[in-house]
Computed example of a mutant assay.
Amino acid sequence: MSKALLDDVVEHAYADAPLECCGLISSRDGDAVQVYRTANTAKSKFKYVMDPREQLRITEEIEDAGLALGMIYHSHTRSDPVPSETDVNLAKFGDSDDPAWPGTLYLIVGTKSAEPDLRLWSIVGNTVEQVTLEVTD
């Protein structure tokens, strides 16, 4: 992921603090291409909810551009950027352990201090694994 795209995500996280932010990141061949900021309709310090119509519009825009949904991002304003039980459940399709967004990674930005703490995760069912976040110039 480029530093410029990552900076956009971090700026979004701090701009929305103390509320959690959320958004989507498109990719091509595993490389992040564009950040799509979305509103957290929950307006909460503890969880995020994307407007389904906005999420659908963005995912259609991503697909129409021949890209993939590479990452879903949000912030944790009071805790470490580790997926919560709520985060894990949001990554599932309904009540099943099937992924809601197969192949999509989850970027969490910790904003509890002045320096952002960024961690990337693979969440499939109840299996949560940290993934290396590679940043390029």
Results as ranks from 00 to 15, higher is better:
Ile25Asn: 03
Val35Tyr: 01
Val109Gly: 01
Lys43Asp: 12
Pro83Met: 01
Glu11Asp: 10
Lys45Met: 15
Arg57Val: 10
Ser27Thr: 15
Asn40Lys: 06
Ser79Gln: 13
Thr38Trp: 03
Pro52Gln: 01
Gln55Lys: 14
Thr38Ser: 12
Thr104Cys: 12
Ser122Leu: 09
Ala68Glu: 14
Tyr73Trp: 08
Tyr36Met: 02
Ile62Glu: 00
Tyr48Trp: 15
Pro81Asp: 00
Thr111Arg: 06
Gly30Val: 08
Tyr106Lys: 06
Leu90Glu: 09
Thr127Gly: 00
Pro102Ile: 05
Glu115Met: 01
Leu6Arg: 04
Glu85Leu: 06
Thr136Ser: 11
Asp16Tyr: 06
Val49Lys: 14
Ser122Ala: 10
Phe93Cys: 11
Met71Trp: 09
Cys21Trp: 01
Val33Ser: 06
Leu133Trp: 00
Met1Ala: 10
Phe46Lys: 15
Phe46Ser: 15
Pro102Asn: 00
Thr86Gly: 12
Asp98Ser: 09
Asp29Val: 04
Pro83Leu: 02
Tyr48Leu: 07
Val82Leu: 06
Ser96Gly: 08
Arg78Trp: 06
His76Met: 10
Leu107Glu: 00
Arg78Tyr: 08
Thr127Gln: 07
Tyr36Phe: 14
Leu5Pro: 00
Arg53Met: 02
Asp80Met: 12
Gln130Lys: 13
Leu133Lys: 04
Thr127Asp: 07
Val135Gly: 03
Val10Gln: 01
Ala65Asp: 11
Asp137Glu: 13
Tyr106Val: 07
Gln130Ala: 08
Trp121His: 06
Ala68Val: 13
Tyr73Gln: 04
Ala114Phe: 00
Leu19Tyr: 13
Cys21Thr: 05
Trp121Val: 02
Arg37Glu: 09
Met50His: 09
Pro116Arg: 04
Gly103Lys: 08
Ile123Thr: 03
Lys47Leu: 14
Arg37Thr: 02
Thr38Asn: 08
Gly70Leu: 01
Leu107Thr: 05
Ala13Pro: 00
Thr59Val: 12
Met71Leu: 15
Glu20Ser: 09
Asn89Cys: 09
Ala114Asn: 06
Leu5Gly: 02
Asn89Gln: 12
Leu19Met: 14
Leu120Tyr: 07
Val9His: 03
Lys47His: 12
Ala42Gly: 07
Trp101Lys: 02
Leu69Phe: 05
Glu134Ala: 11
Ser75Met: 02
Glu54Tyr: 00
Trp121Ile: 00
Gly125Glu: 00
Ala39Phe: 07
Ala91Trp: 01
Gly66Trp: 03
Thr41His: 02
Asp8Leu: 11
Glu20Val: 08
Pro81Asn: 04
Leu19Lys: 10
Val109Trp: 01
Phe93Asn: 14
Pro81Arg: 04
Glu61Gly: 07
Gly30Cys: 11
Met71Asn: 02
Ala15Thr: 14
Asp64Gly: 11
Pro83Gln: 03
Ser2Arg: 13
Arg28Ala: 14
Glu63Ala: 15
Lys45Asn: 13
Ala68Gln: 13
